[in-house]
Computed example of a mutant assay.
Amino acid sequence: MIDSRYVQTMARYNSWQNNQLMPVLEAMSHAELTKDRGAFFGSLMATANHLLWGDILWMSRFDPSVQPPQVGGADSTKLHPKIMSWAADRFRMDGKIRFWADGLRAVDLIGDITWYSGSQERDITTPLATAIVHFFNHQTHHRGQIHAMLTASGRKAPVSDLVFMPQDA
């Protein structure tokens, strides 16, 4: 289904996207960041927090050196109250994702992963490759929501097309 190059490319894409979003979000006022814009999680800040929370959660499943988020899913949108603490945590997590991806070998992508799902209230088992694809798809989905909210607010959203990612990203 996937190979280590796919994972490394998507980890680079995630980092590239977040590095473009950070200055845009950091330039906005707290009121602008927390304004309900009618998205699934309401605001830019809530969506960015949920996205980071999901990344931390999935990485804690993929890499035992990563600790799970300190809050549950119901509070995922409140992970960080301020953009600067979010940005610092986002930067660190993106580095961990890239380090993990760069160390993967083909054999590391074989087999199943099992975890307890709080949202489903049961153990879930799925092929590891499927879980990794979901991980990156979740990122892209919520960054798309952030992109739409930025555009609707009159701000210029960064380029998000994978094919335009610089080779050095």
Rank of each mutant, 00 (worst) to 15 (best):
W100V: 01
H138I: 00
G118E: 14
G111L: 07
M84Y: 11
S60L: 07
R143W: 14
A87V: 13
S153R: 11
N137P: 05
F136M: 03
M149V: 08
L44Y: 05
D89A: 15
R98E: 15
S76E: 11
S76C: 15
K156I: 15
S119Q: 14
D94N: 13
A88L: 15
A148T: 12
R143M: 07
M93C: 02
M84E: 07
H80W: 10
A131N: 08
D94Y: 09
R122V: 04
F135A: 11
F99M: 09
D102Q: 15
L44C: 04
S117L: 10
R90D: 06
H142R: 04
F164P: 01
G144A: 14
T47N: 07
N49H: 13
T130D: 05
E121Q: 15
T130V: 07
T114C: 14
L79K: 00
Q70T: 15
W53H: 04
I83F: 01
V71F: 09
I113D: 02
I146R: 02
W115Y: 15
A106R: 06
K156A: 13
H134W: 07
G72Y: 13
R61K: 05
R105Y: 05
R92V: 13
G111H: 05
M45S: 14
M149H: 04
L109V: 10
L79T: 00
S117M: 06
S117W: 14
W53S: 02
T151A: 09
D94F: 00
D123A: 11
A152N: 07
V163C: 00
L52A: 02
K82V: 13
D55M: 06
P64G: 03
P69E: 07
A148P: 02
R61Q: 06
I132M: 01
R90K: 15
L57C: 06
I56A: 06
S60T: 01
S119K: 09
W58I: 01
H50Y: 10
V71L: 11
T114L: 13
F136W: 04
L52E: 03
H141E: 04
Q145T: 07
L79P: 01
F164C: 02
S85A: 15
H138F: 06
T114E: 15
F62L: 13
S85K: 12
D94C: 02
S117F: 14
T114R: 15
G144I: 03
Q120N: 07
D75E: 14
L109R: 11
G118T: 01
D161P: 09
P81G: 12
D112Y: 02
I83A: 00
F99G: 08
G111Y: 00
F164M: 08
G144D: 10
S160T: 14
S60W: 03
R90G: 12
G118W: 14
W53G: 04
H141S: 04
T140H: 09
Y116N: 08
L104D: 13
L104V: 11
F136S: 00
G72A: 10
K96G: 03
P64N: 09
N137A: 11
I110H: 10
F135S: 09
S160M: 14
I56G: 05
S65N: 13
A101K: 09
G95M: 10
V107L: 09
G154N: 12
D161K: 13
V133T: 09
Q67F: 00
D55Q: 12
R143I: 08
S60V: 02
A131L: 02
A87S: 14
R122S: 08
I56L: 12
L162D: 02
W58A: 07
I97Y: 07
T77Q: 10
S43D: 08
R90E: 05
M93T: 08
R143K: 15
W115K: 08
